[in-house]
């Protein structure tokens, strides 16, 4: 998350970037900490995934980044070579990409994979 935030801030103009950085109070090592600090009122805003906002059940409100600033965040899935259960592994991947898994991921706030 920290690296994505750096990317986003890097897209901003120098004065905007400095203004944002001047207000940074905390650099949590993971997103859970950001959620906690937000819900406990310790900070007013934080950079996090839309899926983490969705998981708070309405306690946090997402402000989408302008389209030009949004970093490419994609997760990959693959079957490892030489696996003992290739059939099941492939079925799992298919389920994530097309089946119930895809429906669950979309419901949780993920978007369809970029290639499809």
């Amino acid at each position: 998350m920290g690296a994505y935030t750096q990317t986003v801030l890097g897209e901003l103009g120098a004065s905007q970037r400095t203004a944002v950085l001047a207000n940074v109070k905390d650099r949590e090592p993971d997103v859970t900490g950001i959620v906690g600090k937000l819900t406990e009122g310790a900070v007013d805003a934080g950079f996090m995934y839309i899926t983490d906002v969705a998981a708070t059940g309405g306690r946090l409100k997402a402000i989408p980044l302008p389209a030009g600033l949004e970093p490419q965040v994609a997760y990959g899935v693959a079957v490892v070579k030489g696996t003992a259960h290739p059939g099941q592994a492939r079925a799992f991947v298919q389920g994530l990409l097309h089946g119930d898994g895809r429906a669950d991921l979309l419901a949780a706030g993920f978007r369809p994979p970029p290639s499809s």
Binding site: K25, D26, R27, G33, G36, K37, A42
Partner: peptide, 13 residues
């Protein structure tokens, strides 16, 4: 410390 004070260089890290 991480939960209560957070982590920020020079202030709480």
């Amino acid at each position: 410390t991480l939960m209560f004070a957070g982590s920020f260089q020079g202030i709480t890290q």
